[in-house]
Design a protein around this nucleic acid. Structure first.
Lengths: 242, 242, 242, 242
DNA sequence: AATGAATGAGAGTTCATTCAT
DNA sequence: CATGAATGAACTCTCATTCAT
């Protein structure tokens, strides 16, 4: 969309409006479907609505997807960013402190995944997973597992390097993931915004949670050692200002 | 149906089982409905199934609930334990440390709410909230707000008494709630049990998370001040043993 | 319908209109379906029409038959008279000439099967057999095979008793069956009646055909010289060799 | 589509294959349609299939035929061989015996019509006739009537020349036609081949049937006493009254 | 009060037909 | 001429809801 197009553009135009649309159709339908599925749930979304939002007729939808269920599956597959596997590689070369790694990980994840529309997927899978076992399995394997694995590695690194205390790694992973999931759910759930709680900044919260996980809520014990200069980011912790 | 029953038998049965059942009907229906709604979602649950599970006929369901939507609303209302208001009172009289309060709060909440079937409500509201705005509002007011308020008070108490460092209270509340929500969702989602992750103990995790929130994952700074004697429970934290 | 009902009638009435109808429904639907399937073909018959002709609503049809295809199968099964197996038994005790047997067989078959609505089945299976392989197989086994077997036995009896000349039994069976099939098709095909050929009496024709099969169309030659050398082709008739 | 084609190439192709195909199109479509209509029935045949089998696109089909129904009508018209009118002329000059005429007629008919794909038409009209009244009428006039007329003339000739006994001509016609129809139906119905009845020779059967019609199944009685008094029914045979 | 047969609006899906290219 | 993407009417089937019993 934002990529510069020159030559390709012209060639493309030569192929006619019809043809270009044809290639765009599946994508448009998937986008419309994701919106509606997230907004209303799988069952409450009528095929015709999806088609209408994509600007086509009901029949056209079935030209590209055999059934509503297939459309749903395609939506999930389409929106599964395989970013975690990529991250896993980056992790090997990371030089900084593990605390910084964790902070970065959460922040970047929010920017790249959590804050995007794809975050609606989590809610979607949560609601409909039971009705699509194969898909749930697929989602778990492709999205959940890699995320867990990534975090597991970070935690282990912290322990191995003596930065973190020894601990139950699985528990720690869940402690990191929990707020991420919460933010995803808030993100794809416009309802709470209706309330007065409009001013909630997910990114700030995740940063806060990162610090809390790292150092706890309790007032630091008398010794002035403090957390040293982590520097990766302006810390949202209020006590750090004092 | 075909078994011969004497008159006395009939009368007896009529006054005995029937009458008692009659009053129990709505409750049985609500229970069946909760199970099925949580398991399959609102739309995927057929009215007849609910009736069948409650041991009555389809028609009877509509004798007690005007419509499927009304049934859903009733299910939500029925399962909203007003326990938080009660807890709020207990809080005023609490004598121990705020850290203990938090630990207790999470532990008791799991035992009284999180681990029960009512925990399916969270998932239910998450999935269907959009389609039932008034209900979502009701749920937010009756279940979410009180829980937040309770935690808010605990956090504030900690800060005011100098136990906790100053901090953004709303953020802290979310940090406490996130794992609770995660456990609820895991609880009402049999799918993950299919995986190899069978051995995950929610209560232990919540205890772990409480400690983490309180003291952080990082190895305690050199000074041996330690975290004092919390003692409220055998801590699952591994580093506490060192 | 015409059978006298006394006591049973009253008992039945006590069960209420609703209940009696319920038991009659499947039959009424099958009858309506047979009519329409024969008249318009499987695909051209809309489910709603069947329901309407049976005096019920669309939904009711699917209360008794899982799908349109199941309805079709049920129609075929319902109208398969297992009379041939019965006839096979009668055949053993028959005392008269085999010629009479054949005459009787064709006449009775017309009265009991050919002239009834069930005769529409032949046409139905002919048209739709390809689209319902299992059903075609079933029909072949239950309706076609027995009829063939019966006729085979009659022909063999005639040969063994010296009444018929030796011949290819399978061919003879087809020669007997062909006009029966023709009559069935005419029967269930009101179109030809639109023509001027209104006055065609199937029973008379079958009797005529029986005699023709037995004695031929040719004027009995006064001398045993037979029909001279026709030579047009090697004749498959076995008796011509004697 | 992606292969590079030089200009000459294109022009050549355009004038060569294209042009020849262009004129052949309707014929190819009709052939494909006949095959599919016979095989699956009118309704179960999708327009796209017909087009695909003819090697053109769906749109092209509607370039040549206004609608699926028009295509069907064209198929029927196309495959109606007007051979009978021709045969009628040959009949006037025939010199041999009427028995031979009948034999020849059936044999030649099988070779020229019955055994060809056109025989599928009979099944087609049988199945779909009701839904295409004008077409049924057309078929009756063009195909059925002439065949009947031809046979009528043969039968009459036999009677007039004293070769056949006096008889009901219409009945006799049906007796001749019945096995022809049966063979047509078997021909266009691959299902029976699935059975064990693989070895059935239609031409041999028709020859057999011709002989049977001419001389009957019964062993020629040495004495002219005929079949004695069977009595089972008043015999419709006309010659028995003479 | 309870039943369950019946209903019919509504959803998913198909496919003959059109028309911009 | 030919294409095939797009259409939408028509059809099958579902299920919340009703109501005679």
């Amino acid at each position: 969309m934002n990529a510069p197009r020159f030559l390709a553009d012209k060639l493309c135009a030569a192929r006619g409006k019809r043809e270009r649309r044809k290639e765009a159709r599946p994508g448009e339908l998937l986008e419309a479907a994701l919106d509606l599925f997230v907004e209303k749930g799988f069952a409450a979304t009528r095929s015709e609505e999806v088609a209408a939002r994509a600007g086509v007729s009901k029949g056209t939808l079935f030209l590209y997807f055999q059934s509503k269920e297939e459309l749903f599956k395609a939506v999930v597959r389409e929106n599964l960013t395989g970013e975690f596997t990529e991250w896993n590689r980056e992790l090997d070369e990371y030089e900084g402190s593990t605390a910084d790694m964790l902070r970065d990980c959460m922040r970047v994840w929010w920017q790249k995944v959590g804050s995007t529309k794809a975050s609606g997927l989590a809610k979607l899978m949560l609601s409909e997973g039971r009705n699509f076992p194969e898909l749930a399995e697929f989602y778990y394997r492709e999205a959940v597992q890699p995320r867990h694995e990534l975090l597991r590695r970070i935690i282990r690194r912290g322990i191995e390097r003596g930065e973190f205390a020894p601990m139950d790694v699985e528990f720690a992973v869940q402690s990191v993931i929990a707020p991420m999931l919460l933010m995803m759910l808030k993100q794809s759930d416009g309802a709470s915004a209706t309330e007065g709680r409009a001013a909630f900044d997910p990114e700030a919260f995740l940063a806060f949670h990162a610090e809390t996980l790292l150092h706890g809520l309790c007032r630091p014990a008398p010794s002035p050692a403090a957390t040293t200069a982590t520097g990766s980011q302006p810390l949202p912790r209020i006590e750090s200002q004092s």
